[in-house]
Computed example of a mutant assay.
Amino acid sequence: MTGASLLLALVTLGRLVELWFSRRNTRKLLARGAIEVAPGHYPAIVLLHVLWLGALWLFGMNQPLNPFWLAGFLGLQVARLWVLTTLGSRWTTRIIVVPGERLVATGPYRFVRHPNYVVVVGEIVVLPLCLGLPWLAVVFTLLNAALLMIRIRAENAALDMVRTQRPN
């Protein structure tokens, strides 16, 4: 097994575990009265990430690892864990809001409104660069940017709805 295939296996496993946590959290949140907002673009996001990982496996599994970019990717994983632990049971891959609950304003959310998207943008760029595939970084960054414009607009509207429903 090459270093690249080991890295890709760990990333793939991590994404599968995250999907499991997301589904579990989504079920619990919906049972508490949460609502999903703007689910129509979600399949496109899943497809983008599947294609990104698939392309990395196809073109990168036998590539040498660039230690500089690998260090950057590992730093992004620390940031990912910070986001996940800050949100806890509220973290999902969907836009789920619980009317009347306070928005999270701790951890990385003190500094950035959408820290998870900052991490994802970084990963989409940095992981291909770890494998010497800058063209994959460019292609998937552009595709991700198009989807994030839709996603962030929908999420901001959902968060604004929660803010206005919360009594002062």
Rank of each mutant, 00 (worst) to 15 (best):
R90Y: 11
G72L: 15
P99Q: 07
L103V: 00
V97E: 00
I96P: 06
L84G: 02
V98Y: 07
L81D: 13
V98S: 11
E101C: 11
G100N: 05
L74M: 13
V104K: 02
I96M: 12
V98I: 08
R90Q: 14
L84E: 08
T93F: 09
V78A: 13
L70Y: 00
R90C: 07
T92R: 03
T85V: 15
A71I: 04
V83L: 05
T85N: 12
L103H: 04
L87K: 10
A105W: 02
Q77D: 05
V104P: 02
R90F: 10
I96Y: 02
E101D: 15
R102A: 14
L81K: 12
V78D: 03
V98A: 12
F73C: 03
R94K: 15
G100I: 06
V98K: 05
S89K: 13
L81H: 13
V83F: 02
P99S: 07
F73V: 06
L103Q: 11
T85Q: 13
T85L: 15
T92G: 10
V97I: 14
S89L: 13
G75N: 08
L84R: 10
R90G: 03
L76I: 12
L74T: 03
Q77I: 06
G72D: 00
W82G: 11
L81Q: 14
S89V: 13
R80Q: 12
R90T: 04
W91I: 09
W82F: 10
R94I: 03
P99G: 08
